[in-house]
Amino acid sequence: MNLLAIVFVAILANNIVFNQFLGICPYLGVSKRLETSLGMGIAVTFVMAMAAIVTWVVYNYVLWPLHLEYLRTIAFILIIAGLVQLVETILKKTNPTLFRALGIFLPLITTNCTILGVAILNIQAEHNIIETVVYSISVAVGFTLALVIMAGIRERLDLANVSSYLRGAAVSLVTAGILSLAFMGFSGMMTL
């Protein structure tokens, strides 16, 4: 499977947010402002890449040989939660401003379905280590792309006269629907 196809499919054709419905909670929550979206995107990319490598190694060298595949979910989520807590502690010391800007959304990365989703998809697609890393980073870039596009639109949405009932999450969901319609255009171009 050539890597370019993986990158294209992960970012555009099968975008994790618009086509696979993963990571919607932080997507709706964080994409209010551009800076926090980028900060969250970078943090998710970092954690997703690290988590993908560690989960791939643990699955193929520990769980698979011992026939403990059913421990896959719990082992992965423990690794992800541990990594996020680690990133949180380190970030709090090294870069307090980004830490405060991300605020609640850093621990929320643990419950971010994309990271566990990607870890599981990597195993299901039987990627080797290079494909796993490339796929995870491209998915994270796709997630950040979706986040940044949404943040750009939402900042203008706040000034448009949206009816008071549709303000906030409702209008962002409808916008996400239209964006997802646009992203569907890519799906026919190339498949894995």
């Binding site: 643990v58 011992l66 403990l68 421990l71 082992a75 423990l78 690794i79 541990g82 807590q85």
Partner: peptide
């Protein structure tokens, strides 16, 4: 052992 080990590690 596996899960305990992971718990211990983290």
């Amino acid at each position: 052992m596996v899960l305990g080990g992971l718990g211990l590690l983290f």
